[in-house]
Write a protein that binds this DNA or RNA. Structure first.
Lengths: 299, 299
DNA sequence: GCCATTCTCTGACTTTAGTCAGATAATATT
DNA sequence: AATATTATCTGACTAAAGTCAGAGAATGGC
């Protein structure tokens, strides 16, 4: 990577850190500390479960609890047990809290308008487009891939999206009952792994590795959400699956794909998979691939 | 301003706040709090005067002093009186401090490289260009214009740049001794004002208003640094000068300009100045302008 | 039905990041 | 030479933003 590129990116990060610092100061005039304002803003007009809020803001549960008590005392929000699960508490803003939310929201608008105000209309449009580009292109770096339970809500959501997509793209649609099955148990250690790609916590892709007899692994259910496609995530998912395979001491990886998924085929070929004769009964597949893994160096 | 534009900008600010939050966490692994790391980083390998550091970081002098003592105890930096002015203390990093600086620097590189790493070369280039666009276009919003002493270093620096530029652009060069003078005393209240435009503290433009006999003001020394040109700052400087004129109860503003400064002429015309017959002996001028100010509404 | 896990809460602390009011010494201004 | 200003430091506070251990209730998985 060119040094010039790195320093360009660093300059951007630096100036934006400053700008965002200035932005945050603008929230301070609302009469409560940043952390509390952020919390009120995240609760929003619709309310939220404490658990979700804690995950989103990444706060310690004790700290969170105390913040909530403080805001409750100020009559900005109210908590009550969730209907679905009596352990989790649901937060809703009071009328006063909603007014504060509106103030915070307005302050955000003002900051944004302040960036646009000095510009001519054409430059405003350019700024917005450039921001969209930066956002899209930096998304890839914010994606984290890791193993999760194949039965987790995120995993099931990904699989659902995956099925919906291939149903739309395969010539004859897709019926999970007819395709080669991939039971959750087989995508669970030690018989396999299920990887989920997340962007800011939200699932945006998945891939499964199923250990077959001997030293052979089977890659299944690889999917990347369209919002993050074209950023090299397919390759990263494949690399992550190979990493898992290496840890499981596998020697060969196999996978199959449908003729309509041209970008997937290109990815597999580019990643060193070579086409082999049919090895599975997957009725929706037209191409079968295989790759010999390099033996792991002893640790 | 379109609502859609504002919400687009807000989304960008939001995602980048998150990214930058993550970035800052990466510095935390260096074993000292963010504020102290930032300080060490700003001191840099060349050293800095405490005064400048305080301005740059915007810290209270007491707090700053305590931070320095803490870092001195840890043998990360050393202070000594400045040679030029025994009141100011100069900070230099010790060998240990320089090692820490290198670590911080490397962490910054790692973050930047992490943004670039997942991208293909063409996308890397696009990201960098988009970042440069965003930076350039948001610069205007970060510029602050305010009155400063015409004898201040920033003012003198601006005037120097201004002279250098017109010397290069006027047909016959520019000799300050031959031009209409603008003594510092006349650009100082109550006889006049000197405005400086600053971007993140750095001067990037200036403009002077000199009160002539009666209710007439004379605009002189208007200059905008090339790095921020094309962002509407000339107009803002002119507006700010008119604001000052209104506060001084002036009724008419005058100015003159050289034929080679086409963009300046366009600005004046656009701002409502109309060309009038020569009213001054400025030998470098070819055009004279005037504008009647609207009377200020009573406060 | 039992046991592990999840979710929230409380108590007891800590660190970070300041603010504010002087005191002191050096320099600038008049 | 007298006075004002500037730069730094010290003492005495404060608010914000956590951390960590453990308790208690509810739920999920077997």
């Amino acid at each position: 990577m060119a040094k010039k590129q790195i320093s360009d990116v660093r300059r951007f990060n630096r100036t934006f850190s400053q700008r965002i610092g200035a932005l945050q100061e603008s929230y301070q005039k609302l009469g409560l500390p940043l952390g509390e304002a952020r919390l009120v803003y995240e609760v929003g007009t619709t309310g939220i479960d404490v658990r979700d809020l804690r995950n989103r803001l990444g706060l310690d549960s004790g700290y969170m609890s105390r913040l909530l008590r403080k805001l409750e005392e100020r009559k900005l929000l109210a908590t009550h047990a969730s209907a679905a699960d009596a352990r989790v508490r649901r937060i809703e803003l009071t009328a006063k809290g909603k007014r504060l939310f509106a103030d915070i929201d307005r302050a955000g608008d003002t900051v944004a308008a302040g960036l646009l105000a000095p510009l001519r209309p054409a430059d405003r449009q350019r700024l917005i487009e450039a921001m969209a580009d930066v956002e899209r292109l930096t998304r890839a770096a914010a994606v984290r891939i890791g193993p999760e339970k194949a039965s987790s809500p995120a995993a099931l959501w990904c699989l659902n999206e995956y099925f919906a997509e291939i149903a739309a793209r395969f010539d004859a649609g897709f019926n999970p009952a007819k395709g080669l099955p991939a039971p959750i148990a087989e995508m669970t250690p030690p018989r396999g792994v299920f990887l989920v790609a997340r962007l800011d916590g939200r699932p945006v892709g998945c891939g499964a590795l199923i250990v077959e007899t001997g030293f052979i692994g089977h890659i299944r259910r690889m999917w990347i959400a369209s919002e993050v496609r074209g950023l090299g995530l397919g390759r990263r998912m494949l690399d992550a699956l190979e990493e898992q395979a290496a840890e499981l001491q596998l020697r060969t990886l196999r996978l199959e794909t449908n003729r309509n998924l041209a970008e997937a085929r290109a990815l597999y070929q580019d990643a060193g998979y070579r086409e082999v004769p049919r090895f599975s009964d997957e009725p929706y597949a037209h191409h079968w691939f295989e790759k010999a893994l390099r033996r792991r160096p002893a640790p």
